[in-house]
Each structure stands twice: as C-alpha cells, then as structure tokens.
Design a binder for these strands. Sequence first.
DNA 1: AAACCGCTTTACGTTTACGTAAACTTTATC
DNA 2: GATAAAGTTTACGTAAACGTAAAGCGGTTT
Lengths: 149, 149
Amino acid sequence: MSTKKTYSISELAREFDVTTRSMRFYEDQGLLKPGRRGQTRIFSSKDRVRLKLILRGKRMGFSLAETKELFDLWDETLSGNEKQLHLMLETLARKRAQLEQQKNDIAMAEIEMDTAEARCIEALKILEEKKEKMRVSKVPTQDTQDTQA
Amino acid sequence: MSTKKTYSISELAREFDVTTRSMRFYEDQGLLKPGRRGQTRIFSSKDRVRLKLILRGKRMGFSLAETKELFDLWDETLSGNEKQLHLMLETLARKRAQLEQQKNDIAMAEIEMDTAEARCIEALKILEEKKEKMRVSKVPTQDTQDTQA
DNA sequence: AAACCGCTTTACGTTTACGTAAACTTTATC
DNA sequence: GATAAAGTTTACGTAAACGTAAAGCGGTTT
C-alpha cells in the first residue's frame, strides 16, 4: 500500500552497492523471495527492506544464517501463535544482550583510540619542536636579512 | 614491569574460551608473537592483551587481517617516524567513522527491536483476553462454588 | 619402562560468502 | 534481423577462519 513499486535486480544492486551475484545468493539461502515474471526476478519493497536489513546485519557482524533465522522467526511470529510469540521475545532478549556487548566493545575501542590518538599527537608535537630547534640553529642570523626591507 | 607473568597456550585458551588451534592460527597470521622455550610457546602479558583485542575485534565484525593491520601499524607508529604517525592518525579517523556507522546500525536495530517487542506483547495480550473470555463462557456458574466456603 | 599429559608440526577437510566464467534466453534498439 | 544489454542457470574457484586427525617430542608419574 505504502510503496507499491517493484525493482529489478540490478536496480537494487546499484542502490545498495552489492553485486547481483550476492543478491541471487541471498535468495538461494532463503533471505530474499522475489517474485518472477517468466525467468526474471521482480523485487518488491519488502525485499528491498530485507536487503537493507541483511546488509546492516553484515556490518554488525551477523552471519547470513543468523539474519535468516530472525527473518523466519518474524514471519512465523506474524502467524500469531503463542509459542512463537514467546520464542520471538526470548530471541529479542538475546539479541539485545548481544548488542549491549557490542556497544561495550565499541566504547572500549573508542577509549583506546583516544589514548592512541593522544600519543600520536604528542609524539608529533615533540618532532615539531625538534624541527624548530634545527631551524634556529641552522639559520642563526636570519633576521639580518629581514631588516633590509 | 606491571604484570610480568607468562602463560601457556592452554592457559590463555581457557581464560578466553578459544581453542589452541585458533591461537596457533593467530600466530601463523602474525597476530601473536609468543616467545619459545624449545618448541613450546610462551605467551607474555602483551600477547594476552593482543588476544583480548583480537577477540573484541571479532565481536565487532573485524577480520583478522584488519586487526593485524592495526597491530602492525601501531608497532611501526611506536618507532616514532613522522610519516607513520600521520598514517596512524588517518587510520584512527577511518576506524572512528566505521564505529560511528556501527553505532548507528545498532541504534536502528534497537529501535526496530523495540517496536517488534511491543507488537509481540500486544499480540500476547490479545491472546490472553481471548483465553479469559473462553474461561468465563465455559464456567458461567463458577462463583457458586466459591460461596460454599 | 610404560603410560600418560601437554605441547608440537603437518596437512587435509569444512563452512561461509561470495567471485568468475560459460553458455543460454529475453527484451530493446538500430 | 542482427546485435547489444540485461537477465538467467550451472558450476567450478577462492579467501577466511578455523576443525580435525595423525604422528611425534619431552617431562613425570606409577
């Protein structure tokens, strides 16, 4: 209803900077389920969303299998079965814990990068000072030239 | 000077819950450089830190090659060469951007998990209400039993 | 000394996530 | 109607990150 448009494979591939090979592979693994017109794949906006989620998952270090699990679980959840709903809630909780761990890791990494950067800058400052001294000791009577103007 | 202790391979493997195979592989790829007593590897606390960083990197979705690049770069940075220092600063900046992207991805994921969870809970609530109705319509004269006590 | 323990090397096997090439339709364009 | 452009299947290849034997070395415990 919202965005009824459909997409060709290369259209989506360009938009998200993935190869068509990858997209066919994702379909092969059951992550995408495009329609067909004859042989040709026709991607819906739902597929588009899923592709976006797949790629985000990858950036977050998720395997395709993990992402597929979530997709399947969500699909089954939509069927409204009570057991599935609880299963989904548990899974969500686990994923949240995982994200917490990642946020922690990132925070630690940032701290260490701060100190690393500080050391670099410090080292550079010292190098600059040395250079300055070199310049001074090499051209000690430089200002005599300036007075000419 | 701080923590002079050394470790055996299985000692560290247990502590960080990795296989010795993995640790030897990390060494093979140049990520760890333990000393040797005869054939036997002897890991320093520096190696221990590196192992920790390797694993954190993995959780953050970094490849071993990426992590190795950072290790090597940092080692060369310590030599104090000016060019290396600038290279390190650039690399740090790129990594920071990468972490920002990841934080973004995580934030988005959390939002979507929030709405997913809310829908689950909502669906469950509706199911519970239905169950309640079932109970009421099935045992309409239940309170007559209670009045007995 | 026999047997066990932990460590070692060597080397082939496996899974994931595609790359790459070949050969073949379908659709659009000249 | 030739030809190029975009799509398809099939299938072999590959890099990363280990798993999994197999076989050997060096202590030590019984």
